[in-house]
């Protein structure tokens, strides 16, 4: 086994452990946890035996297994960045909504206080 394989396997086991911890604390729901669990197990399997990627390469019609993994990894990363961006936009809008509610309600409160004191 090469050093890079050992490092990657250790890192992926660490990721698996994090998935387990997040699942136990309720941060990840059942289906999400299973998805991530399978993902990291497959990653470990591919690192230990890179020939597994040939199966994937054949299915996708790509020459080398490692190419198939890189294409898939880049696609997945793009997808995740996009999802995070959309999520951030949503959070942005929620913050605006909160800030607006706060502004309008504190204005009403100020008005009521003034009315009470006059």
């Amino acid at each position: 086994m090469m050093i890079i394989q050992i490092i990657l396997v250790l890192f992926f086991f660490f990721a698996l452990f994090k998935v387990f911890l997040r699942f136990r604390s309720g941060g990840l729901k059942g289906r999400e946890a299973i998805g991530w669990f399978v993902f990291w197990i497959l990653a470990i399997a591919v690192v230990i035996n890179p020939n597994y990627t040939l199966i994937l390469a054949k299915i996708l019609g790509v020459g080398r297994g490692v190419d198939a993994i890189i294409y898939l990894a880049i696609s997945l990363l793009f997808f995740l960045v996009f999802k995070i961006y959309i999520h951030l936009e949503k959070i942005d809008r929620q913050i605006t909504k909160l800030v607006r509610q706060d502004t309008l309600s504190s204005q009403t409160k100020k008005y009521e206080d003034t009315a009470r004191h006059s």
Binding site: I95, T96, V99, R100, D102, T103, L104, Q107
Partner: peptide, 9 residues
């Protein structure tokens, strides 16, 4: 004056 506590655009 209505004030947003943080800048929202």
């Amino acid at each position: 004056v209505l004030s947003h506590k943080v800048n929202r655009g």
